[in-house]
Amino acid sequence: MQQPVTASTTIRARGRHSRSPAIWLLLPTLISMVTLVLYPLVRGFYTSLTTSFFLSNQAVFAGFKNYASLLHNPVFWTVVWHGLVWTVGVVLGQLVLGFVGALILNQPVKGQALFQSITFIPWIMPGVAAGLLWSLMYDPTFGLVGNIQHLLGLSSTAYLSNIHTSMAAVILAAIWKGTPFTILMMVAGLQTVDTAVIEAARIDGASWFKVIRHAVIPQVAPVLRTTALFITVWTFNYFDMIYVMTNGGPVNSTQIFPTYVYQLAFGQLDYGLGTAAGILSLVVVGIIAAFFIVELSRQGALD
């Protein structure tokens, strides 16, 4: 269904011929997306319907056998669940901390610019480096966390090696790494907030929390939604940190789709099975993204 479009933001196509500019403008993008995303995806889908041994070039068409074997494998469902826990945990953490952090850093304090840029270092740091940093920090004997526990007289706990804490530990590391992006977006968002609305609420005697809830959040909602959409998608497919920190272990307790797909396709070289898992992960994240897209569409962000 075509949404009505306001004349003020869009130049209406006049007649049949003036449709062409859009095509020419989109051409470079379309060519690269078709060759680098669509074509590989179609190839990938075909691969997911085949089985081949290790490096063998003789792939046997197997229909949906790979899919069936995944859907019957309890590990697959563990991965689905962990993928959701990981994504929700990281995204919620990044949004809440990012929003609060932006409120804090938006205050006119001395050194504001310096504080803001220091906060961004984790975002700029490559995920492998951040993952190694955190795994060293979590080390019960040589790490910062172990040191703090030692100073407090607590027995040291190895968070990455306990199936009950490993997921929380990698999520915390990912929140540290990714929150700066949300702060960046929210600091920017807050600068466009209409302060008159906030002042009015203050004068009415509203508490700080109410001001945030009713005057600030509605105004920054569009930024929040777009940010949430993008970080959800990135987090779901984020590979680097878990790969170096736990490689999905112990006992699959931190196994999420990107590490699982990688292990099947490139660790064991069961490329058909790995690709099938990849396609299924696309379905899972597609369902999550669909909610956002519908919401964006409802807001008119697609018009």
Binding site: M33, L36, V37, Y39, P40, L41, R43, G44, T47, L229, F230, V233, W234, F236, N237, F239, F257, P258, V261, Y262, A265, F266, Y271, G274, T275, G278, I279, S281, L282, V285, G286, A289, I293, L302
Partner: peptide, 19 residues
């Protein structure tokens, strides 16, 4: 616009060998 978002959902491991 929507397919631009969708393209971001595909895990890299699926695309990497064809690319």
């Amino acid at each position: 616009l929507v397919s631009m978002i969708l393209s971001q959902l595909i895990p890299l491991s699926v695309l990497i060998v064809p690319i």
